Amino acid sequence: MGRIPLCFQCHTSNRCHCKVVGPTVGFVAFVVTAVVEWPVGAVVYLFRHSKGRRIMAQPAHVVYPKVANAFPI
């Protein structure tokens, strides 16, 4: 059977010094938004380079950190 990917972030400010839920949910949110935004960003990049780069970078620079930090564990 398939395995569920888990993401760990250790040495954080919580008591157990490791986060599992936040990085894992953040990764899932990253993948979902990347599937949509990377093709859109590639098309926009053909006409406006800087705007296309910002669109393609949004899953990594905006979505993942906000979602991962929303969960304390």
Rank of each mutant, 00 (worst) to 15 (best):
H61T: 08
F30V: 02
V35M: 15
G52H: 10
C10N: 08
Y45N: 12
C7G: 05
Q9P: 00
K19G: 00
F30S: 04
E37N: 15
V44Q: 14
R53N: 06
R53A: 12
F47I: 05
C18L: 03
V21E: 04
W38T: 12
G41R: 13
F30L: 15
V40W: 11
F8T: 00
A60W: 05
H49W: 09
V40A: 13
G26A: 08
L46I: 10
G26N: 02
V21D: 03
A29C: 11
C18V: 13
F47C: 02
N14M: 10
V32A: 14
R48A: 15
S13I: 04
Q9A: 10
V28H: 04
Y45W: 15
G41N: 11
H11D: 14
S13F: 06
T24W: 05
G41A: 11
Y45L: 15
K51N: 00
F30W: 13
H49A: 08
R15Q: 02
P59N: 08
S13W: 05
R53T: 07
H17E: 12
C10S: 09
S50I: 01
H11A: 08
F47R: 04
L6R: 01
F30Y: 12
G52I: 09
F27S: 13
T12A: 04
G22F: 02
R53E: 05
V43Y: 14
P23N: 00
A60T: 11
T33R: 04
V32N: 03
E37W: 11
S13R: 08
F30M: 13
P23Y: 01
G26V: 07
H61G: 05
L46T: 08
S13Q: 08
V25C: 09
M56Q: 13
V28A: 15
P59Q: 06
M56E: 05
V36G: 07
T12L: 07
S50C: 03
A57M: 12
G41Y: 08
F47D: 01
F47K: 09
G52D: 06
C7P: 01
V20T: 08
H11Y: 13
A34S: 15
A57N: 09
K19H: 01
H49Q: 14
A57R: 09
A34Y: 10
H11M: 12
R48T: 05
A57W: 09
K51G: 00
V21A: 09
S13T: 08
S13D: 08
G22D: 02
F8P: 00
F27I: 04
M56I: 10
L46C: 14
A60E: 02
H49N: 03
A29V: 10
C18W: 01
H17Y: 09
V28M: 12
E37A: 15
F8K: 00
C10Y: 06
G52R: 11
R15N: 04
T12N: 09
V44L: 13
V44T: 14
A60H: 04
K19E: 00
P59M: 05
G22M: 05
N14D: 06
H11W: 11
K51V: 00
P39N: 13
G22T: 02
A29R: 07
Q58L: 12
R54L: 14
P59Y: 06
S50D: 12
F30C: 10
F47W: 14
H49R: 15
H49L: 07
V25N: 02
S50A: 12
C10R: 07
V36P: 03
A29N: 07
H17N: 10
L46F: 10
P59E: 04
R54Y: 01
H61K: 05
A34T: 09
A57K: 10
F30N: 14
